[in-house]
Amino acid sequence: MVTLISRSPDETLALGRRWAETARPGWVIGLCGDLGSGKTQLVKGLAQGLGCPARVHSPSFALVHEYAGGRLPLAHLDLYRLSGAAALRSAGLEDYLLAPAGVVVVEWFDRWLQAQMPLGTGPLRRVHLEVLSDTERRISYVDLGA
């Protein structure tokens, strides 16, 4: 388990950019943390680091945004509106996690785990973001899988 402190949205963005440097195809990143803890900000950094030219915005409503044009394609999933196994299953998102084409980052990943939805065997980074103060966030992660 690695634990970091981010002191601003810019630092969270920079962390995402650094993670992108070591990204390889099939990498799944699961993000857990409250509203406003910086999940989307981290994804913005990832997209920048991968060189995706499109503007990253929240996929809470659309469920998935796919960003092409970078070193690797980035799929940005958001399970905010999908609570419970029935809702998750009917949304049909399994392929993103079982056979990720590039980098797949999932907001509200805890919902996927709680519903015991299937996971692939590739590299998985589970990330927790915690609000410490108005600007500070504790970001901890653990790497699992191949």
Binding site: R81, L82, A86, A87, S90, A91, G92
Partner: peptide, 12 residues
């Protein structure tokens, strides 16, 4: 649908 938000139920 029994509680599943229909617009999210893409399988349907």
């Amino acid at each position: 649908y029994g509680g599943v938000v229909p617009e999210l139920a893409t399988r349907e």
